[in-house]
């Protein structure tokens, strides 16, 4: 080699390149892909990566948000504003039947709510538009069963995942073949850690929902979780116990199922500092994971992300 070039590439640039390659592969190989957008920080990173993959062109597939109708208000505001600003092709889908029969976490518990308003709504949405590939922002470091899932994860006609019968996945050659009705879930940020995501948000100036930052908020304490009083649907006897506390959210979901943490972190730097010193992994603030041992694997088998 006749010139000296530094070919070292940082882990973030390597992860970014890997994700772009994965996203382009889906756009090239599938007829009708969709990117599932949860409004959370991981989704925000994933959408930025999609924009990177097709620049200077537009992202060639729609985003879809499965609205459980119990998301934080601030999430919905953020979604609508950001989608408009970026001119996204955004589909919002929810389970009308479930909504009309008043399914919710307070009245039906987290299991029924998640099953009807999230898992069922997702499957309905995928079926309605006939998507043959769906991107998700899950990471392998989040949870044990995810650590074993492929980047291109096959789903049968009923959207079921069979952890014991996964397609071998080698190098960066992805098997994208499906029959009609079958589909693939694709996880372009599989190999990112929570710190990688925050670091990337910081470096790329990616906007995120303000709920991630600490602020005085009205919360109640329930089974050790701090739950935000986000609207009038919280039962009065619970809402009456509310008090103002300086809190933020480490993950975002349905407000009655997502606990806040007490924090003074008001910037991405503060958040990382807090993360590195207060070592509580992020899914502990998600109530659903504690339903039963191995519960995430169970949900995944049933079609949940």
């Amino acid at each position: 080699m006749n010139e000296k070039v530094d070919y070292k590439i940082s882990h973030l640039k390597e992860l970014e390149a890997e994700a772009i390659h994965i996203i382009r592969e889906v756009a090239a190989e599938f007829e009708n892909p969709v990117m599932l957008y949860s409004i959370g920080k991981d989704s925000s990173v994933m959408v930025r990566l999609a924009e990177k993959a097709f620049a200077p062109g537009k992202v060639p597939f729609p985003l879809m948000h499965i609205d459980s109708k119990w998301k934080f208000k601030e999430m919905i505001e953020f979604r609508d504003q950001y989608a408009k600003e970026k001119n996204w092709d955004l589909i919002v889908h929810h389970n009308k039947e479930g909504f009309n029969s008043g399914i919710g976490p307070f009245s039906h518990g987290s299991k029924v709510h998640t099953d009807v308003m999230k898992t069922q709504a997702l499957l309905d949405g995928l079926n309605k538009f006939g998507f043959d590939a769906a991107f998700g922002g899950a990471r392998r470091d989040e949870e044990k069963s995810r650590a074993k899932e492929r980047i291109f994860s096959f789903r049968d006609k009923n959207h079921q995942w069979d952890p014991k019968n996964q397609r071998p996945e080698l190098w960066d050659i992805y098997n994208t073949k499906v029959h009609k009705g079958e589909s693939i879930r694709v996880f372009p940020i599989s190999n990112w850690t929570e710190l990688d995501v925050w670091q990337y948000i910081r470096l790329e100036n990616i906007p995120i929902v303000p709920l991630y930052f600490a602020k005085e908020r009205l919360v109640i304490e329930q089974d050790g979780n701090l739950i935000l009083v986000d609207d009038h649907r919280m039962p009065k006897e619970l809402a009456d116990t509310a008090e103002k506390r300086m809190v933020r959210f480490r993950t975002l979901g349905c407000y009655p199922l997502t606990g806040a943490v007490e924090s003074n972190a008001t910037s991405v730097e503060d958040i990382v500092e807090e993360m590195m010193t207060v070592k509580v992994s992020e899914r502990t603030t998600r109530v659903i994971d504690f339903d039963q041992d191995g519960s995430m694997e169970q949900k995944k088998r049933e079609g949940y992300f």
Partner: peptide, 14 residues
Amino acid sequence: NIKEFLAQDEKKDL
């Protein structure tokens, strides 16, 4: 400090 930590972290390879 945290900024220095992040500056160092972003340069790490994999």
